[in-house]
């Protein structure tokens, strides 16, 4: 086991959490991520294999699905990002690569993103200040890419709120956008 200590995207040793009015914005560093792209001509095989790894249907266009240990969301035609707890799946990309074999291209994405979990009443009112997605139509299980404060982000409607993935290097800017918008609304 190596002896290097990780930092969160906001450069802390513990995740940052802000409670503003009814909403809570929490930095969520504990997720391993890997992109899975189907190889040409292997789209069906990849979907089947990925579904079996997930233990759930693969997500359709702009959707997110939850399996027993892992979840995944659609990011483009025949490409998904798989999520799993970091502690148990730090080697997620290698594991997926081994299981999916020749039918998919897998790329580690764990540290490409910063994730914020946003929960609480009235988050629709918060997100209408942040991105152009129609939250009323973004039901649970929806996953859309959108622009928040000039940053390309994934906005995922989970069971307990909204998960935002933004570019990790801009974590501070994204955090500023989320919190300042929340203070403006609530």
């Amino acid at each position: 086991m190596h002896d290097l200590a990780p930092l969160t995207a906001l450069a802390g040793t513990t995740p940052v959490q802000d409670s503003i009015g009814p909403v809570t914005i929490t930095e969520a560093p504990d997720w391993a991520l890997a992109s899975v792209a189907a190889r040409l001509g292997q789209e069906k095989a990849c979907s089947t294999a990925l579904a079996s790894v997930l233990g759930a249907d693969i997500p359709g266009v702009a959707a997110h699905t939850q399996g027993p240990a892992m979840s995944a969301f659609w990011t483009g035609p025949h490409i998904w990002i798989v999520e799993a707890p970091y502690d148990s799946h730090e080697d997620l990309a290698a594991m997926l690569s081994a299981k999916l074999g020749e039918c998919a291209s897998v790329t580690e994405q764990s540290d490409a993103w910063v994730r914020f979990d946003v929960t609480g009443d009235g988050i629709e009112r918060l997100f209408e200040r942040l991105c152009n997605l129609d939250l009323a139509k973004l039901g649970q299980g929806a996953a859309r890419r959108s622009v928040i404060e000039h940053l390309g982000c994934y906005v995922i409607r989970g069971t307990e709120g909204i998960h935002v993935y933004g570019p990790r290097s801009s974590a501070q800017s994204l955090h500023h956008a989320l919190t300042s918008a929340a203070r403006a609304v609530f």
């Binding site: 190889r39 040409l40 790329t107 540290d111 490409a112 993103w113 290097s169």
Partner: peptide
């Protein structure tokens, strides 16, 4: 019809 997949990993490493 080339079998090639692309993704940015600038931020990941």
């Amino acid at each position: 019809d080339m079998d090639v997949q692309l993704i940015s990993t600038t931020e990941a490493w």
